[in-house]
Design a protein around this nucleic acid. Structure first.
Lengths: 188, 188
DNA sequence: GTCTATAGCTAGATAGAC
DNA sequence: GTCTATCTAGCTATAGAC
């Protein structure tokens, strides 16, 4: 076998970067190939299903990443709850590069006529909600409160990404990550 | 002059609906024309600059709408502050059709290579921030607190729209509009 | 596994009749 | 002002050499 020019994980990360900045329809196969450092035909060798399979693979990778770097950490009772939250927020800060990059779930959530993408988005969001809910319950909130806080956490992250980009002010994202701590550990 | 099949405002609303559901690149001129009830060439008569001018016109309409239905109301000191907030939240609920439709500012905020769109997005967001800031100051918060609450209000709205769609649960949007009231009139 | 070359199609945009 | 017809460029996707 001829060696791969780029391994699967690095490839998916580069492809994700195109989708989350340009959206599904805005990302041409030429854009994707250029970012991957491959030619279009090579992308079809890796993803025979074409653009739709690439998007699905990127979303599946995002689900796996979220489970490992958000969900699993938030549920890890061997770590103090407060430390779990700190670690996860650092991972989120890195994922979105301090608010300068958008979310792939948002970018692929426009109407594309490909229902399977919506299902993968819902699965990933639920992983995050369940993780933050578990954290809140471990801190002592009721299940109802915990779910509300988890949903509010996702709202804050997604909303902050949009407003940060719209107003071109990364302090908004930075402050939002800080404010999320106050949801779970109120200061007043 | 031959009469218009559709007046400017109704036309812009129909065009906005396409953009906010499919995004800029995902909305073809055939899509836009079909939604408008016109042929492609007729759209070029109305908007000689083509798709880019259509998007700019839709954003300009959004700016005007926001100034009239959000900004101006929030700054209208002849109305009690609490009533201003109620009225604006009702307008926002209608704009997003109870959370079932996305935001045009989000839909057009992907990287398209058209910088002017970003400027129009920033202008509109600032109109909203200034309106909610003024409301908060009228209620008695300091300018710093007021700006924070205004930004958090926009974060909540935009974030709720994304999570509502992602999890396919309109209760999230409904609850978020309620929670915005608590930002300005804390219950605890 | 990656590449060049190309097929088939749809996109955005224009010309000109009515 | 709206329409039909058409142009060119770029799109997704495929065939086949290396």
């Amino acid at each position: 076998m001829r060696p791969q020019k780029i391994d699967d994980t690095a490839l998916l990360i580069r492809l994700m970067d195109v989708f989350r900045s340009k959206g599904y329809e805005g990302s041409s196969l030429n854009d994707l190939a250029a970012s991957a450092g491959l030619k279009k035909a090579s992308l079809y060798h890796r993803f025979p299903g074409g653009k739709e399979e690439i998007a699905a693979a990127v979303l599946a990778y995002t689900t796996t990443w979220g489970e490992a770097h958000v969900g699993a950490i938030l549920r890890d009772t061997t770590i103090p709850a407060r430390q779990r939250l700190e670690n996860v927020l650092e991972n989120i800060d890195a994922l979105y590069v301090q608010g300068t990059k958008g979310c792939i779930l948002k970018a692929l959530s426009m109407d594309t006529g490909i229902p399977s993408l919506g299902n993968l988005i819902e699965i990933t969001m639920n992983t995050w909600v369940e993780g933050f809910s578990q954290l809140a319950e471990d801190i002592g909130f009721t299940p109802t409160e915990a779910t509300q806080k988890a949903v509010q956490t996702l709202i804050n992250i997604q909303g902050a990404l949009i407003i940060t980009k719209g107003l071109n002010d990364t302090i908004i994202f930075k402050n939002t990550l800080q404010n999320i701590k106050n949801l779970y550990y109120p200061t007043t």
